[in-house]
Amino acid sequence: MTARKAASTLFMGALWVAGLVAVIPLVLIVYYVLLKGLPAVHVGFFTQTAPPPGVPGGGMSQAMWGTGLIVGMATLISVPLGVLTAVYLSEFGRGRLAVGVRFVAEILLSTPSIVAGAFIWALVVVAMHSFSALAGAIALTVLMWPIITRATEETLRLVPDELREAALALGVPRWKMVLRIVIPTAGSGILTAVMLAVARGFGETAPILLTSLGNDFLNTNPLQPTDAVPLRIYNYAQSAFPAWQTLAWGGAITLLGAVLVLSIGARLLSDRQQRRLG
């Protein structure tokens, strides 16, 4: 074997090892969470509320409803905000305002989530004199909006300029062109962006800790403290009761499953969108 071939094989081998090393943590996490959490997962897990300390069984239904409420509201706020901002940045913004908005989105993307939580606590919780699902939703919006904006802007930019020119040359006004041609063509790219943002929203603990507080009982009032799955996991994992610890693992499976489904779905959609445009 010549030296060059040996170097090539060595390098390829190193790449394979690196790839495996990257994949192993995910595999281990999934395996361990399944191992620990499957005993907790049964029908009751999804229908029953928090059990008293020491009592086996019970479920996290109030936490799941709470997560649904909080993340649902956050999605309702951040999707229109994010998509409209992305449309502005991609189609209309040229000056300093656009540069500023993009910069703000980049900064917010890497803001520590507890900072977002503390900020909304100071702004909303103190003003309302109450922890609430709404405050939790607003805190999540701060973290979800930049993801939607940046990812949607990227996907809108991928729509070929020739399509925009074709529509403009036919006498279609610019805003109609964006609405009828650009956004539908970007289509599933925008959905991908939303799914990635929602996946993040599901998993964030710190911001809702400071804004939504948690609740042992089912709450549907957005202005009251509400439970969420990450909060439950946080509390139960630190508790002394094995029953609660098992429930925490069950919660972990639920979260992991939701995030995996969203991420894989987003990836499949994204591939389909690329084939459509390419």
Partner: peptide, 30 residues
């Protein structure tokens, strides 16, 4: 209105990613 009166066809064909019918109908409906 000007762009309606002065039509343009480009070097690379650029049909919209829609049906043949909708390609033509889009601007007409507008």
């Amino acid at each position: 209105a000007l762009r309606r009166a002065v039509g343009m066809v480009f070097q690379q064909p650029n049909p919209f990613p829609m049906s043949i019918y909708d390609n033509i109908a889009l601007a007409v409906r507008e």
